[in-house]
Nucleic acid binder design. Structure first.
Lengths: 168, 168
DNA sequence: ACTGAATTCGAACGAACGTTCGAATTATCT
DNA sequence: AGATAATTCGAACGTTCGTTCGAATTCAGT
């Protein structure tokens, strides 16, 4: 909180006037971030029907946001279990909605192409790829969000599309 | 340190008698973990020549260790940037060696199959998949290391093997 | 200009933290 | 048994942390 006070130019007591507690400030950051990402995602998904294309939109939306806001990504990844009680419950609900959207997209792809694989592992692997990026991405040497989204999309989609077909 | 004192049954001062500082204790944990993983990996790789099989061994070795030692995984992921100066340098060297081994395995696969893709993105995506697991794996509902290693191996290897061929 | 509400802040509080110290206890060797 | 070294610990140290308080300042409406 003293670091934030110094960085923002507002006194320590002033910060508490607006945010009540360190935990509530963290809650507001997490809630704002996930809400923004989910909202943008819904807008972008509205214009696409192809299951593969919709998963690519999901990946691009996620990476664009976090590569543009690397500090947010660090806070969300690092402090994922820091909230308690109602704060934790409310953030968990938004995260769950976001996760369920991705599961839905993956299941649509499975149905559309008559594929057979574990949706849970595929989705969580995808989240792992995307979220781990905050540990290594360097804007001076690495490609931009669009390029990385394409490459990660290639890996997951090929990985999944070339798998076992449902036997009929 | 007080938590560790309580959990271990040794007094706080006793802990400092053996570990000198909190940072050195963290250093020893990180060094021990990475050293162990790299050593086991080398033993297992000694008996395999097929590039695809070698990558599968890498994945299995990594997941087996971390699913058996979830607390280690949390410490390594969470405190990856916590060390300073010589401690940081020494751990970074082992991590780099581990990373380079995986890059080597991926490049072997590329050469063997005449493939074209970004080794860096493929390897870092693989690490992301594997390391993110500490945020979601529940031994009561999720499969064991062998099964998950197979599924993640399928995703990465198919994703990469079905990509563009080098044009000749 | 006056008043009540909103905003801002310096200064402090108590708790938790990493660490150290000196003394007590235990182990080892002759 | 006595001497030396290794181990263990309660108690404290200075610092940092999250938070609060009361007073000062600014703002809005009359």
């Amino acid at each position: 909180m003293r670091d934030l006070s110094r960085a923002s130019g507002m006194s320590l007591a002033g910060l508490y006037y607006y945010f009540q507690s360190k935990e509530r400030l963290l809650f507001l950051i997490q809630k704002h971030t996930f809400t923004t990402i989910v909202q943008r995602l819904k807008e972008r998904l509205a214009g696409a029907v192809d299951p593969e294309q919709r998963i690519r939109i999901f990946i691009l939306n996620h990476l664009e946001y976090f590569l543009a806001n690397p500090a947010s990504m660090k806070v969300l990844s690092h402090e994922a279990d820091a909230l308690k009680n109602s704060f934790a419950v409310e953030v968990a609900a938004i995260k769950r909605e976001y996760y369920r959207i991705c599961v839905g997209l993956m299941d649509d792809l499975k149905r559309d192409r008559s594929l057979e694989f574990s949706t849970r592992i595929a989705v969580l692997s995808l989240f792992g790829m995307m979220n781990w990026i905050y540990t290594w991405h360097n804007p001076r040497v690495d490609a931009d969000a669009g390029q990385i989204a394409r490459e990660m999309g290639d890996i997951v989609l090929r990985g999944v599309l070339n798998g076992a077909r449902v036997r009929r």
